[in-house]
């Protein structure tokens, strides 16, 4: 009732109380859980990143100390290796490299597959096959990749043997300078299904007679794509790109399953999520560092959120 009282004190008398109470009844249960388990902990991380931590207990205010320590931590950014472009470069550059490769590849492949399947019979089955990986738990994807790249039992190495590149057979996920690319390929494999799905639904809205008349008018495949298809799938591309970026920012289970909590040998494919997990929940517990790393992730996510909000 205290909410009712505070409202009473602040709002004009001509408020429709019955309606206001109904709104509260509808909103409160959901928003309470949202506040306690989502917004609250986020604010907690923001505040906590400026405090010292004794395991899980908040200590004294330390200003930017957690931030400067984290940003000079070679596990987060290893400047020497970054400038020489040798792994491990730290979780932040590795995560960003992953994003830079993953997003364009999965977007373009998704569009290509959507176009390829668009007017074929049995397209629903073809699409479902490609989409299957996206419904699979990401931890299983990580294990599948571990299996695919296994030197003996892995189908990728068998493929190399078949095409006569036996010299290249190896445990790909243990190769410091190559492993991350192998995992990126796995991520693209999964996310292509998602971008293909979105592009397919956009392509379904294109009038086939429009394409037909363009063909009759002598427009080649490239012209038809540029003038008819692209303008219609362009808005979807923004969504596909944003969702791809969020997906890569949140990447965790694939890396954990393929390379353990360290993120591969000597952390060569560690990502930000993994660093948060290790900092917060393994000895020694470094809550301040974990919060800073999670906030770095948020900083990359915020412009995306702003873009989504503007689209609405």
């Amino acid at each position: 009732m205290s909410i009712q009282e505070t409202l009473d004190a602040n709002v004009d008398a001509d408020v429709d109380w019955e309606k206001a109470r109904a709104i509260l009844v509808f909103l409160l249960p959901g928003l309470t859980l949202f506040g306690v388990f989502s917004v609250g902990p986020m604010a907690y991380s923001v505040v906590g990143s400026f405090f010292a931590w004794d395991a899980f207990e908040m200590g004294a205010f330390v200003g930017l100390q957690n931030w400067s320590e984290t940003l000079t931590d070679p596990l987060i950014i290893n400047w020497d290796n970054l400038l020489a472009f040798t792994f491990p470069m730290g979780a932040l550059p590795q995560n960003l490299l992953w994003m830079v490769l993953h997003v364009p590849l999965s977007t373009v492949l998704g569009l290509v597959l959507a176009l390829l399947f668009a007017d074929l019979r049995g397209k629903r089955i073809l699409r479902s096959l490609v989409f299957l990986g996206f419904t699979t738990p990401t931890v299983v994807i990580g294990l599948v990749l571990l299996f695919v790249y296994d030197p003996q039992a892995g189908v990728f190495n068998e493929l190399l043997r078949v095409v006569g590149m036996e010299g290249q057979v190896r445990n790909w996920l243990q190769e410091p300078q190559i492993a991350i690319y192998c995992l990126v390929a796995g991520g693209v494999w999964v996310q292509t299904g998602f971008s293909m799905l979105l592009y397919s639904s956009a392509l379904a809205g294109i009038d086939p007679s429009l394409l037909e008349s363009a063909r009759i008018d002598g427009a080649g495949p490239f012209r038809r794509f540029k003038d008819i298809i692209w303008p219609l799938v362009k808005p979807v591309t923004a969504v596909v790109v944003i969702m791809g970026m969020i997906w890569v920012l949140r990447i965790f289970a694939i890396v954990y399953a393929a390379g353990g909590p360290s993120g591969g040998p000597n952390h060569v494919y560690s990502v930000l999520g993994l660093e948060v997990f290790r900092a917060a929940f393994s000895i020694p517990v470094e809550y301040g560092k974990a919060m800073v790393v999670a906030l770095i992730e948020l900083m990359f996510a915020l412009p995306l959120a702003a873009y989504i909000a503007r689209m609405d």
């Binding site: 388990f37 989502s38 902990p41 986020m42 907690y44 991380s45 906590g48 969020i246 920012l249 949140r250 965790f252 930000l272 999520g273 948060v276 997990f277 917060a280 929940f281 809550y287 974990a290 919060m291 790393v293 999670a294 906030l295 992730e297 948020l298 996510a301 915020l302 995306l304 959120a305 989504i308």
Partner: peptide, 9 residues
Amino acid sequence: AAPPELVAM
């Protein structure tokens, strides 16, 4: 858009 790691602690 936020990462789930942010609410873990």
